[in-house]
Nucleic acid binder design. Structure first.
Lengths: 246, 246
DNA sequence: CGGTCTCTTGAGCAGAGTCAATGAACGTGG
DNA sequence: CCACGTTCATTGACTCTGCTCAAGAGACCG
């Protein structure tokens, strides 16, 4: 398992969801790829683009984003290390959104045909990729609810719970204590609020004793209360995948 | 092509996106299945459920939906005939949302293992299913933007454009003239508004001459203006898939 | 003919936005 | 080591979009 092959991270991610054979693992590691490091805010994918490679996030955080004609931005997903950033474009011709990194990040660019071959001809890998894509879609559905039907307090609490959970899962957080991976403007773009209102809401959550906070450092003080305010349940994250095998 | 096999609709849908061989088509038609008709508002899938079959919508309309602990409902997708309603549960254990039909509908229930086999061992069918799932996810991302960053006027105009486009594509609308497949409360649940405000907004759009409307009957009068107000572009619907093959 | 939905419309309220200013933290060049 | 510019976070005052509450009016059904 110990190896410094850059794509080990991708193997780890995919095999966390389905049993992969040695041959499957080898097939992944044998993927042609090109490594690069990018600075915060760099674009990995631009809307309208027709891509030939799929970026895989090896290290760092990224997000998907769209802007309206009015210039308002909405973040539509958060991506953590191991994510196949461009799964959406694996079988679609044109990217329908932008992808930017939040932090300095390491990216492996993998030619799309090679990934397609993997997805179509290696059932176990295909299953893992399906699960990845389906969980992503499930999170998107929850975000629609979050932005559409929860008030500021609840929406932000929800996002704080989700981030805590997912970052912990990615080994980037310790039990409700983490560095909020974005500034308040970006957090506003996640929940559909203005940065000013995000600020006031975070302050209120801290005043109520649900979280402790210093700039972007978040510590969930009362997990149960935050979960309740944010109407958060882990069901939609499908964390059980793999253990409970269908 | 002429046939009254109930799954022809599914074949048509999948083959509209990728070339399927005669063997592929035969494999789909050979799927074990169980037909049934359901009444408006019937549930096809319930959140938390572990399903053994995947409903395929042969006729009628359906929607995915979640509710918050406060009791607010958010509709997170609209499904048209041909849709594999439960693709999300093909590889996930527990349903993360509810699915209800809007109209009287005909459903084919297909055992999940049979569909998985198709998705994992028939590359051409797999590709078509991938495209379906990815377009669905793309629409979900656009809905996050719609609900998060567009005001009532724009959000409703956007949805009217999208519905017009998708219903026409499904053969259910004639060039911007269609029966709105839901009441104003449900439309509110799509865009995150109250039915009262939906009503006022629809009235305003009609007053401005962008649409003509009688109850649920919608006729887009000025398509360009509506598209502009709704900040609508067809990119995210990926209608070109199949023609432009990657 | 009464009951049930759904659509409409009015009146008043409030959650979130806008505008604007201040302050803290950090990096850079001199 | 310090002055300065930049980026973010914070806070106040005021506005407005969309919500709540409530009541009436068609349409359809048994």
């Amino acid at each position: 398992m110990a190896s410094n092959h850059p794509l080990e991270k991708m193997v780890a991610r995919l095999s966390s969801r389905t049993e992969l054979s040695a041959a499957d693992r080898a097939a992944i590691l044998a993927l042609p790829h090109h490594l690069r490091t990018v600075e915060p805010a760099a674009y990995l994918v631009r809307m309208g683009e027709r891509r030939r490679t799929c970026p895989v996030l090896l290290d760092g955080l990224a997000f998907r984003q769209k802007t309206t004609s009015e210039g308002a931005r909405q973040i539509v997903s958060l991506q953590v290390p191991g994510d196949l950033i461009d799964l959406p474009n694996l079988f679609l011709n044109q990217s329908d959104h932008n992808v930017q990194v939040l932090t300095r990040a390491t990216i492996a660019e993998i030619p799309i045909p090679a990934l397609q071959e993997l997805a179509l001809n290696h059932p176990a890998i295909a299953r893992a990729m399906w699960i990845d894509a389906l969980v992503d879609a499930s999170i998107a559905r929850e975000w629609i609810v979050n932005v559409g039907r929860r008030d500021a307090r609840s929406a932000i609490a929800h996002v704080l719970c989700e981030f805590g959970m997912r970052l912990r899962n990615a080994g980037l957080a310790e039990d409700g204590v983490y560095e909020l991976p974005m500034n308040q403007e970006q957090l506003g773009d996640v929940v559909g609020l203005t940065p000013v209102h995000v600020n006031r809401t975070l302050k209120a959550l801290a005043a109520e004793g649900l979280i402790r906070r210093d700039k972007r450092h978040i510590a969930v003080v009362d997990w149960e209360a935050l979960r309740s305010v944010g109407d958060f349940s882990t069901l939609y994250l499908h964390l059980d995948q793999g253990q409970t095998a269908s």
